[in-house]
Amino acid sequence: MALSLQKLQSQFSVRRLLLPMLLGLGVVGYMLYRNYQPDQLQTLLNANLGWLAVALLVLFIRDFGYIYRIRHVTDKALSWRQSFSVIMLWEFASCALPSVVGGSTIAAYILFKEKIPLGKSIAQVMVTAMLDNLYFVAAVPLVLLFTQGHVLPEMEGLNPALRESLGVAFFISYLLIALYACAMFYALFINPKAVKQLLLRLARMKLLRRWSPALFRHANELLIASQHLHHKPRAYWLRASLSTFFVWTARYVIIGCLIAAFAHLSLHEHLVIFSRNLIYKIVLFVSVTPGAAGIAEVAFPAFFGAFLGGFTTIVVLLYRLLTYYLYLLVGAFVFPRWAARVFKHETPSLENASAAAFTKNPILLNR
């Protein structure tokens, strides 16, 4: 995929942004209409302000963690202001594009436009992808241990066989992500040349001829990324890993904070909510709507409704306002200023350079 200013503008046009916003808000409006109770306003007014403040703090920690990580991963080639713009555009793209595509598909291009060399931008996106997936791989066994395996939601009226199928689908997704994370680690740090040769052989197969350009591109990107990452010191990986831990923990904790503002939760219940969030994110990841709009709102009560009852819809709205609509608005403000800066002295045709900078990860936990 070749990117240019015109194509970016068409992807993030007002019309395209209005569609997911109207879809999500329409679903919430319908849920409010169906589940309205007279005491909901009083429950909202009696919210625990302390937990709401913690939710906002967690949101700040999450965003600051992303900004710190991208600045560190790029060896401080980005200023704090540039790092803020990159992360906000990354979140913006995740909200504006379908979840199966995700903002990571244009991350390397964004870094490339910030004057980071092609090889480094590819390597840096791969680093964040690998660390994000490794966090998920490590978190699942821990939450299974602490929650004694009670991670699947108890959905009323759900056929036991269907619930079992949900569990099987989750663990298959977990195994695929684990295999992908291990394969990426092997390809980047152990034997990149062997993996490159494998991809090139696959690209020459008749059955995979349709995807041969992408396979050739990934093979070259892999070797370039490995060369840039091979000699990084331990401190580089330690800081990148710690920031990834804080970022993703904050992402999964925020729902528990919002629920705790309206319902008393024990420590065990916080852990159960955290664990269900892992499955909830998998559901959102396979969504075909921009930013999982509509799907996120519908699926939320199934995973967390047991803790809130009829008040679930209000918390869905608060959660999406903080983690979705906020980034659409911030991104709509940041994008034109970023585009004016990075395209200021550029020739109209950028297809060749931008196509080389573009990278796509087939299995990547969506922001």
Rank of each mutant, 00 (worst) to 15 (best):
L19Q: 15
L321E: 06
F335G: 00
K76M: 07
I295N: 03
L19M: 15
E269F: 11
R234S: 13
V27T: 11
G103W: 05
N159V: 08
I70G: 01
V27E: 05
K193C: 06
N220R: 10
L18M: 15
N191M: 04
I177H: 00
L162D: 09
N35A: 09
Y327I: 07
M126K: 03
Q82D: 09
T74F: 12
A302K: 02
K7G: 05
L152N: 02
L41T: 11
A296W: 02
Y30M: 11
S173L: 04
S266N: 08
I177P: 00
L229N: 08
K281V: 11
L152H: 03
I224E: 08
Y252A: 05
A225D: 05
K232A: 09
I67K: 04
V298L: 12
N133C: 05
F216T: 09
A339P: 01
Y186W: 09
T312N: 09
L52M: 15
R367V: 13
I122L: 13
M126R: 02
S165Q: 11
A93K: 01
L158D: 11
N133F: 02
L144V: 05
I172K: 07
R34F: 12
R71C: 07
L144R: 00
F307V: 07
F60I: 15
K193W: 10
L17I: 13
Q227R: 12
K360W: 12
V28S: 10
F245G: 01
L49E: 15
V27S: 05
N220F: 11
V58C: 10
L5R: 12
T249P: 02
F189R: 03
C257E: 08
F303R: 00
E221T: 02
L223H: 09
L22N: 07
L145V: 12
L45A: 15
S13N: 07
I273K: 04
A355R: 08
H231D: 14
R337L: 08
F300W: 04
Y68K: 01
V143K: 00
M184T: 11
S266L: 10
S10A: 14
V288S: 06
F343L: 00
L223Q: 10
R16Y: 13
A240S: 15
A55H: 10
M205F: 10
T74Q: 07
E269V: 11
I116A: 02
Y236W: 14
V86H: 03
I254A: 08
L208S: 07
N366C: 06
R69L: 14
A299R: 02
T289L: 14
Y36R: 10
R217I: 04
S165P: 00
L179R: 00
V140L: 05
